[in-house]
Design a protein around this nucleic acid. Structure first.
Lengths: 338, 338
DNA sequence: ATTGTATGTAAAATCGTTTTAGGAAGGACC
DNA sequence: GGTCCTTCCTAAAACGATTTTACATACAAT
């Protein structure tokens, strides 16, 4: 493959001049620049990203961490959309993406190790067990970085405003007359879980209505089966005091919840109203269609990208946290019981 | 960040020896090797993939081309699973993945240009418009490469055996008594479309039954809306000779088909039987659940990875085409009309 | 004693860029 | 004519590895 040396030789110039000509440096005459360009074309020259990276000490690549014990793998519908939006954005700015893993070859690299091996210019933490040593090490590092739905002193985040989201859901149910509500929340201890629980309890408290009975019940994220099992347990645990509405941790869980309600011989929304979270496409195709909070995945990906690129560029005053507006999608899974 | 030079200095050795010690070369004493290892640990050394690539002229990275005009983007459920499986496999062998695009920065790189810019060791063509100039250029190149559902002289492929798949579907419907069948096929001209149509017609011919009436009707891949629209048209075009069964090009299309049947005041499977293709998870959650052909996405990804790594290793007799077994999943979308 | 063979290490070249420091040529100005 | 800018270009170092060649030393075989 042709290199700048080949071009230099063909043009009768030095490699340095060729490099500058190709990168639009100011101290090359227009005539020379054009000649170099032409010859480069003719020789089918493509720069070597690795060599460039070595000399610039930046690779124009960004790491993405999206790993989880959940069976969904990397391709959770929601995360996938966020990643795609992120990728499109950074790609336009010349970056490629590297999926960070701690199982590369037999090198025994940690997440951070992998980032350093590939010399990524920054990292986007989409999903991981934030409590795990490996993830912690990465977040402690001083790489430019941004996360989704997680933050601490060392890392900022992009998220769909939890306060507003949960208030929207609660208010929607409350206005339909629901007072006996259960939140089927995701794994306790996860940052986003705690945040949403707090937000929901706050919204409930703000109603200042003694008749409101908000209870929590554990489930897990992104699992139809998990939603099914949890709802089954919930139903048998609340025989005498069945909730009139259930807020699922996410849309998959909500699908499972609906199945469980049916399996118990009850109906949605006649007997129990159900709402989800995330607003993935399929929720509008289910039967009944689901009332849920839509997260704007495109905006999330873009906001994360913009923030990270600003950090990489060394800009000052890069916002630490970006909070995006949720949108309530009204399906047919809730009944007015007033 | 520590380099082998730092280690060399700390050990009182030459960089060459350090390099060899770290790569388990034979001509380094065990004692030296251990010492180097220890110091490397202490200095928190991580090799620089770019530098390594420059000197080895291989990057340990593989390009993935998965782009399409379809609105599904990169994250089509089926392709996503294949890519994940592929990624897991090559990752274990030390490779990272690069998504190939023709919109990187403002460099105006073609697909092949991007591959050359990043010096990928091989490329996996998951989905693209194979007729497009850019894709053709890539396939003409002499990079190690493998595709899904496409092949020609220059590139081999991994696919779910079309002959067997289509025969399974046809036979299933035939055995249920269906004689009036429509295939709602994907875009004409696509390799896989033509292959499946031919396979289906062959299976129908093999029935040697004059009463079999197999018709083709155009639709497009992976679109619920597309399936809906096509089925609507089909219903109005066949008022007097409605098919008893419809084979959709894929599961998404099948979902749209079912909606269209309902919208026409008919029912699945009472009035019309519907089958899909791909076997994505959600088809078992729809109402009714879908009879479909399951493609083994994990096996596809692995087969592609294995094949590509063999090519990269320069092995001889790497199989050009790998054909995998389909699996018939029986849902409740077909009725026995005998 | 000589030759040969491992063995362990070092020096230097190489990979393809970018960057820094400077040099030559030519014009403008006093 | 000398000084000072510009403008355009080059040489050389740097980036961080790997790889090839060469050179010691030790020890065995002849």
């Amino acid at each position: 493959m042709a290199t700048i040396y080949d071009i230099a030789k063909a043009c009768g110039l030095s490699p340095a001049t060729v490099s500058k000509a190709l990168s639009n440096a100011s101290d090359v005459s227009a005539a020379t620049r054009e000649r170099v360009r032409r010859i480069a074309q003719e020789l089918d020259y493509v720069p070597n990203a690795g060599a460039r990276a070595l000399s610039q000490s930046r690779t124009w690549s960004i790491g993405i961490l999206c790993q989880d014990t959940s069976q969904m793998g990397l391709w959770h519908y929601l995360f996938a959309q966020v990643i795609e939006s992120f990728k499109d954005y950074v790609e336009q700015h010349g970056y490629d993406i590297v999926f960070i893993s701690n199982k590369v070859g037999n090198m025994g690299l940690s997440y951070l190790g992998h980032c350093r091996y590939r010399r990524v210019d920054g990292v986007f933490i989409v999903n991981t067990d934030h409590a795990q040593t490996d993830a912690r090490e990465l977040m402690e590092s001083n790489l430019p970085k941004i996360a989704i739905d997680f933050e601490n002193e060392k890392i900022g985040c992009v998220k769909t405003d939890p306060e507003e989201s949960m208030r929207m859901l609660f208010t929607h149910l409350y206005d339909l007359g629901h007072r006996n509500i259960v939140y089927l929340h995701g794994e306790r201890g996860k940052y986003i879980t705690e945040e949403r629980i707090a937000a929901l309890e706050k919204a409930a408290a703000e109603a200042s209505d003694k008749s409101v009975n908000l209870r929590l019940f554990p489930s897990r994220y992104y699992s139809i089966e998990g939603g099914f099992d949890s709802m089954k347990k919930l139903l048998s645990a609340t025989k005498d005091d069945r909730p009139t509405a259930v807020i699922a941790s996410d849309d998959y869980t909500a699908i499972g919840v609906i199945e469980a309600v049916r399996a118990a011989g009850l109906s949605v929304p006649e007997d129990i109203s159900v709402v989800g979270f995330d607003g993935i496409e399929i929720t509008q195709r289910t039967n009944p269609s689901l009332t849920t909070i839509r997260q704007d995945t495109k905006a999330i990906g873009e906001a994360a990208a913009k923030n990270l690129l600003s950090q990489i560029a060394g800009e000052e005053d890069v916002p630490k946290t970006v909070s995006l507006k949720p949108q309530l999608i009204c399906g047919e899974s809730c009944r007015d019981i007033k």
